[in-house]
Design a protein around this nucleic acid. Structure first.
Lengths: 289, 289
DNA sequence: GTTCCGCATGAATCGATAG
DNA sequence: ACTATCGATTCATGCGGAA
């Protein structure tokens, strides 16, 4: 088979591409992407709905895409798949479970399953179930060894700034604060280290309240967390179903290169606007990275 | 096949039975149990360990048990299965996913998956993963229509709970808030008449740190939540892997009948002690029921 | 009666070592 | 090569004792 791929991703970097992600993925070079974060269109049994893929056809629809993602991903890279199965006929459908097993057959390692707990999930009341307040963030890898920068997502300890800091004198507290503010010296990092802890695999993030114009938008903090965890500055982040551009915004804000792909022209335009409005966040090296 | 089952469960009610749950389940009458809550031994790749079932054999080991549970459960009843897959060779093992699909083949409906978020998960640091802070609580039903008493687990709305706890210390407030989220605060009786909301499908409960004598104990609040949600007073609750007796304690405290089954004599004795020490909680009707 | 502090304790996982 | 054991790592919680 003739290799029709580009030599490098340079021409597509830091852009939102309009088109079918499978067609575009075919053109991308192998082993070029450090991280894929995406939230593909959810399954929908209502045929008339936009973009709805029937639950019973979901796995066969997605497998060609995950195959290409596996190819373009670097061996040390990570694929984060945000997904949640719908209720069909009173039951949770099993297409996500089947997808995990099918992707393992495809060669993926199912490394971990993070839970995104949506603090303010949409209200609603049904006679036999409560509000669905969580989604899966499935982590897949090509190899057992992959890049992970755990220090980049450390969080304050539970007692931090509450009981521990209270014991410091006012002078000490001000001195430490000034050190943190200027961000130099090894004492700062050790002080930070003692008051910071590694997170666990449950993420507590509120859903996006503002109208992004896209119905399936996750909050920018979600891709941002994974971008910091699995990439370093200037690495390449890909979202083949970029929607309103949230993953690209997260990557840009954190100083990573990105490629976003979106099929629908109106979302493509929206994503380009959102990315254009995003600003790079000044890196606080030595403190959080 | 000759029917060797008892005519009623009367002789076994409000007791902890010593023995193999599969053998004992065979003797129980069909359609007699309102709720099953259990946390079976987790898979373990260490062969020598007590009770360790190898991950690759887990599904075939559990299916005969779930078949009997299906038989003894009332058509309107619910089966809650608390379980979490282990990491094997750097990957999450798929035996839980396979179990869900196998149980659907068995005739179960996979109605819902609740997340138990363990705020205090076991510590540890590894190069490629964070601490595992959640477990699955899988809800299975025989029929689409089942009994569910949603009002029994309503929780105070966030704003009022916050002001109510204003006088507590920062540390205590944080801890109490975590309990408030699940509907179990220290001073719930004073919440009568306040604004209440339905919970969602994520439960925030800390594990029992203190010496329960059983290494695998979930907090009593966990079965208690499901007992209140899926049964009414005097209903029958079954736990075929009752361990230190937590499910039976929850049922007793809430005025439900219970049957606990435990294989190991030392845990059986422990469960009997724990149940004996448990007291019926005065029903606060109008608040949680 | 409260508040605060110290300490033991986990349904863990990985990598190295030993048989 | 493959399996069993052990040490290192790490933090929210609840309890007891003290102030």
């Amino acid at each position: 088979m003739v290799d029709m791929t580009m030599e490098t991703t340079a021409d597509w970097e830091n852009r939102i591409l309009l088109g079918d992600c499978l067609e575009l993925l075919f053109k991308m070079p192998s082993n070029s992407v450090d991280l894929v974060v995406t939230s593909p269109p959810y399954a929908d049994s209502r045929k008339a709905t936009y973009g709805g893929i029937h639950p019973d056809r979901y796995v066969e629809w997605f497998l060609p895409v995950s195959e290409q993602i596996q190819r373009v991903l670097k061996p040390t890279g990570t694929f984060i798949l945000n997904i949640k199965e719908k209720v069909v006929d009173g039951e949770r459908h099993t297409y996500v479970l089947e997808l995990i097993m099918a992707m393992r057959q495809q060669g993926w390692l199912w490394t971990e399953e993070y839970i995104w707990h949506k603090r303010n999930s949409a209200p609603g009341k049904w006679p036999n179930r409560f509000r669905d307040a969580w989604e899966r963030c499935l982590q897949f890898n090509r190899e057992k060894k992959f890049h992970m920068y755990q220090e980049a997502v450390m969080v304050p300890t539970g007692d931090w700034a509450k009981s521990r800091l209270r014991n410091l004198s006012e002078t000490d507290r001000r001195r430490d604060n000034s050190k943190v503010g200027s961000g130099f010296g090894k004492k700062v990092s050790s002080w930070v280290g003692r008051e910071m802890a590694y997170p666990d695999n449950v993420l507590h993030l509120a859903t996006e309240c503002s109208n992004t114009g896209h119905s399936a938008a996750f909050p920018v903090e979600l891709p941002m967390w994974f971008v910091r965890l699995f990439t370093k500055p200037n690495d390449l982040v890909l979202d083949p179903f970029v929607g309103s551009g949230t993953t690209a915004v997260a990557a840009k804000q954190l100083g990573r290169r990105y490629i976003g792909i979106e099929l629908k022209p109106e979302y493509h335009a929206l994503a380009e606007r959102n990315v254009a409005n995003a600003a790079v966040i000044p890196q606080q090296r030595g403190l959080f990275e």
